[in-house]
């Protein structure tokens, strides 16, 4: 090797070193403080308000990875044998049941709180995750100008009257939507009946957008007249800004309960798991619930609380007047891959 080439190689090595250290510095930063940093994977609208409040209250440093449910689950899946998250906070207990079946969640934790009856009903027996609130799937948001008489039952949606007018989310991109698909199957009496329901909708020109936002946008733009979305998103859309009085919401019977929940990484260091437990307790505390209800007032804050002593926000309808069902998350969680793939190929 001539000296000339040695110089080149030297420069290359220096560059590589620079690239490598960029990552190392990042890693070092997180371990610098005395307390372990709690890594929060969350898809909730109020999450950044919550981690700030939590750190302020407890002094525990947090690192928030705020993303959609899909990418968060991807990150967990990808780093299965090298996990770097502390807790996951997303909508839909089926997703948590799936993770639990893969033994990725810490089991046996239940915060000492006074559950409401509704809350108690969605707490898993093995303590692998903790519900933090409940929304409904899927609220029927409709354009009052175009639809004076909205459908009054799920089956009525199949009428040719609504050809090309109905939109919903893609269950493989929108966290809350698989529970809706599964819920319809459960309600209609089986998977094949449910599949028939969605393929019929498809035949009638169902528009599948990725998530709540785009589906509601399609409603706003007049592309569709009826949007099947998460209740919190539908109510929030009405609240604006800008306030949208052309939108009305109907809750067909039954609505599927969609718990938002927190699960703790089974492989996280013990110190971080302990912090995650404190985080859950904080979320369900009076202060935590206040943050949850103010952090995303036209979106995720529009939930039904699971602990006693907290009233739902005034924009929410009384749950007593709505027929609901709760899916067994373990049964239906196991079917998620198959049904999403089916939906992808046949409905989307």
């Amino acid at each position: 090797m001539t000296t000339r080439n040695r110089v080149r190689a030297l420069l290359a090595a220096a560059a590589l070193l620079a690239a490598g250290t960029a990552g190392a510095i990042d890693a070092a930063a997180s371990s610098a403080s005395s307390k372990t940093t709690l890594v929060v994977y969350s898809a909730q609208g109020y999450d950044s308000a919550m981690v700030k409040a939590f750190t302020k209250a407890t002094g525990i440093p947090t690192k928030l990875d705020d993303n959609s449910t899909g990418p968060l689950l991807t990150q967990i899946e990808a780093s299965k044998n090298n996990p770097n998250w502390g807790l996951l906070w997303v909508d839909g207990d089926t997703a948590f049941a799936g993770l639990d079946q893969q033994h990725l969640l810490q089991r046996g934790f239940e915060p000492k709180v006074a559950w409401t009856k509704l809350g108690r009903s969605v707490v898993p027996s093995d303590g692998s995750y903790t519900p933090t609130g409940i929304t409904l799937m899927a609220a029927l948001a409709y354009n009052t100008k175009a639809v004076p008489n909205p459908p009054s039952s799920w089956k009525a949606l199949l009428s040719s009257k609504w050809d090309g007018k109905i939109g919903m989310n893609d269950p493989s991109q929108s966290g809350p939507t698989y529970p809706f698909v599964a819920g319809m199957m459960n309600y209609l009496g089986g998977i094949s009946q449910g599949k028939a329901f969605f393929t019929t909708l498809k035949r009638h020109g169902l528009l599948v957008s990725s998530t709540n936002g785009p589906t509601l946008q399609a409603l706003a733009s007049g592309r569709i007249d009826i949007a099947l979305v998460q209740s919190s998103a539908a109510i929030g859309d009405r609240l604006g800004p800008p306030v949208n009085n052309n939108i009305a919401i109907k809750y067909l019977s039954p609505m599927t309960l969609l718990p938002s929940a927190i699960g703790i990484d089974a492989k996280a260091p013990a110190a971080e798991r302990a912090e995650a437990e404190r985080f859950i307790e904080f979320v369900l505390s009076k202060r935590g619930q206040q943050v949850m209800q103010t952090g995303d007032p036209t979106g995720d804050s529009l939930y039904y609380p699971v602990v006693q002593g907290v009233k739902p926000l005034p924009a929410l309808p009384k749950l007593a007047g709505i027929a609901t069902q709760h899916l067994n998350p373990y049964t239906w969680g196991a079917r998620e891959t198959a049904l999403n793939t089916w939906f992808d190929a046949n409905v989307k």
Partner: peptide
């Protein structure tokens, strides 16, 4: 995300370093 890299102390997943 290979465990062998993390055992070598290379933990780059989800860092700016890896992206670059």
């Amino acid at each position: 995300n290979l465990p062998v890299l993390s055992r070598l102390g290379i933990n780059l997943y989800q860092t700016v370093g890896l992206l670059i």
